[in-house]
C-alpha cells in the first residue's frame, strides 16, 4: 500500500492538481447550471451535451489571453499573487483525509496545517489588490483583511471546541473517532455538548466568509467594486484566482466534512468509503452555491457585526460549555 517517497510525492502532486483543476472547472459548470436552475433558465447548453465542455472552452479562452500588467503596478507582486493564492490551497490537499487510506500525507498536525494555510489566502488577495494600483482593488483588499480577521476568530474558537472533544489534530484520527453511524458524527454528539449543531453552523458561516462567497462576497462585490481585488487581472491571472476560489471552497467543505460530518464514514455504520466523503463534500458545496444564488450581499458592517457581536460570543460560549461539560460530566 505504501509507495516509495518520490512516487508518493509525484502521485500526490498529480492527483491534487488534477482534482483541483477538474473541480474548479466543473464546479464552475455546477455553479452556472445551478444558478440557471434557480433562475429558471437553461444555463450553458451550447458547448457539448448540457454544456459539459463549456469549462474547457472557457479555460482555452482564458489561457489564450494576454496577461496584462497595468502600468504603475508592482509587476512582481502582481504576478506573484495568483501563485500565492493557489499554492496554500493545493498544499492543504496533502492532509485532507479522502478515505481511510487515501490521504496524501497523514500528519499529526493536519488540522493545524489546514487552518494555517487557509489564512494565507487573505494575504494573497491583499497582495493582488495592493499591487494592482487600482482604487477598487485596494478598497477590496482592505475589506478582505478586516473580514478575514473577523472571521478567523470564531472559526478557530469552533475548531478549538472540536479539538477538546477529539483530543487530536490528526484529521484521519478525527474521522476514525466518528465511525459507527451518523449519531456518532461530531455534529450530532449532543451528549458531549448540546450545542454541537450550532458550532457546525458557525463553522459553515465562517467558511463562507473565509472563502469570500456570497452573501459575504464583499471582496468581489461586482456591483460596488467592479471585480474587487481582481479588477486588473486578465486571462489566466484571473483564471488562477478563480480556480483558487473553488479550490478553497473544496478545502473548506472537505474540512467541514471531516470535522463534523464523519468524513468517509457511512451514516449507517457499514460500507464506509471515499464515496461517502465525496457525497458529503459535494452536498456542502451545493449548499454554498445555493446560498449564493438565493441571498443578497450583506453590508460590510453587517458582516463585522455578525462576527463580533454574535458569532464570537456564541462560539466562546460553546467553548466554555464544552470545557465545563468535559471536566465534570466525562472525567
Amino acid at each position: 500500500m505504501t509507495l516509495p517517497e518520490p512516487y508518493r510525492l509525484a502521485a500526490f502532486v498529480l492527483g491534487a492538481l488534477a482534482f483541483v483543476g477538474l473541480n474548479a472547472a466543473y464546479l464552475v459548470w455546477v455553479e452556472r447550471k445551478g444558478a440557471a436552475r434557480f433562475q429558471r433558465r437553461p444555463g450553458p447548453t451550447e458547448v457539448g451535451p448540457e454544456g459539459l465542455l463549456q469549462p474547457i472552452a472557457d479555460a482555452i479562452k482564458l489561457l489564450s489571453k494576454q496577461v496584462i500588467v497595468p502600468p504603475g503596478a508592482d509587476a512582481l507582486l502582481f504576478r506573484l499573487a495568483p501563485a500565492v493564492v493557489m499554492a496554500p490551497a493545493l498544499m492543504t490537499f496533502a492532509v485532507l483525509p479522502f478515505g481511510a487510506h487515501l490521504t496524501a500525507r497523514p500528519m499529526s498536525v493536519g488540522l493545524l496545517l489546514a487552518v494555517a494555510f487557509g489564512s494565507i489566502n487573505v494575504m494573497a488577495i491583499l497582495l493582488g489588490g495592493w499591487a494592482s494600483r487600482n482604487k477598487y482593488a485596494i478598497i477590496s483588499a482592505a475589506r478582505v483583511v478586516s473580514q478575514n480577521v473577523a472571521y478567523e476568530i470564531p472559526l478557530l474558537l469552533v475548531v478549538i471546541t472540536l479539538l477538546m472533544i477529539t483530543g487530536t489534530l490528526d484529521l484521519s484520527e478525527i474521522v476514525r473517532q466518528q465511525a459507527g453511524g451518523f449519531w456518532r458524527w461530531n455534529v450530532f454528539k449532543l451528549w458531549v455538548n448540546p450545542l454541537m449543531p450550532v458550532t457546525f453552523v458557525i463553522f459553515f458561516i465562517c467558511l463562507l466568509a473565509e472563502t469570500n462567497r456570497a452573501p459575504f462576497d464583499m471582496a468581489e462585490a461586482e456591483s460596488e467594486l467592479v471585480a474587487g481585488a481582481f479588477t486588473e487581472y486578465a486571462g489566466m491571472g484571473f483564471g488562477v484566482f478563480f480556480m483558487a476560489e473553488y479550490a478553497n471552497i473544496v478545502v473548506g467543505c472537505a474540512l467541514a466534512t471531516a470535522l463534523f460530518l464523519g468524513g468517509w464514514q457511512s451514516p449507517f455504520g457499514i460500507g464506509s468509503g471515499v464515496g461517502w466523503f465525496l457525497l458529503k463534500l459535494y452536498l456542502l458545496i451545493f449548499t454554498v452555491v445555493w446560498i449564493r444564488w438565493t441571498f443578497p450581499r450583506t453590508q460590510f458592517y453587517g458582516l463585522l457585526n455578525l462576527s463580533w457581536k454574535i458569532l464570537i460570543p456564541i462560539s466562546l460560549g460553546t467553548l466554555g460549555l464544552t470545557s465545563v461539560l468535559l471536566k465534570f460530566i466525562r472525567p
Binding site: 433562475q39 429558471r40 462585490a221
Partner: peptide
C-alpha cells in the same frame, strides 16, 4: 435594484 444589492436571481424572475 436587487442586482445592486448582490442578489442575482430576482432579476430573472422580474424579467420573466
Amino acid at each position: 435594484f436587487l442586482l445592486d444589492l448582490g442578489g442575482f436571481t430576482p432579476l430573472l424572475y422580474a424579467f420573466d
